[in-house]
Nucleic acid binder design. Sequence first.
DNA 1: CTTATGACGTCAT
DNA 2: GATGACGCCATAA
Length: 107
Amino acid sequence: MSASPPAGFVEAVLDIVDRIPPGRVATYGDIAAMLGSRGARVVGQVMAYYGSDVAWWRVIRAGGHPPREHEDRALTHYRDEGTALIETPAGYRISPSARWHPEFADE
DNA sequence: CTTATGACGTCAT
DNA sequence: GATGACGCCATAA
């Protein structure tokens, strides 16, 4: 069987995702960096399993695209929250200005 | 310790 | 700009 998600990392990742204000997004790599690790994939594993309980659509890849299997579903949320999007011939991507930085957190 | 998996990242072509 | 390959981290068996 495939490796189950990192239980201990779960709460750490979910905590950060929960801090992302609406209309903003953070990349997997950034979140991993906040945890002091470079395990961008590990963050993804947590989201894949526990993401159902958090605003997973606020977590995107470095390229500005949402999860490969949920880009359509995420788009609905972005429009609902007014996230800055850039429309492209191939589809769309998240506006770089929409990227949330923990150091600029509004809390 | 080794192998396998993954909602990723970056570089090379 | 798209595709392929390797790297990276954490967990389970």
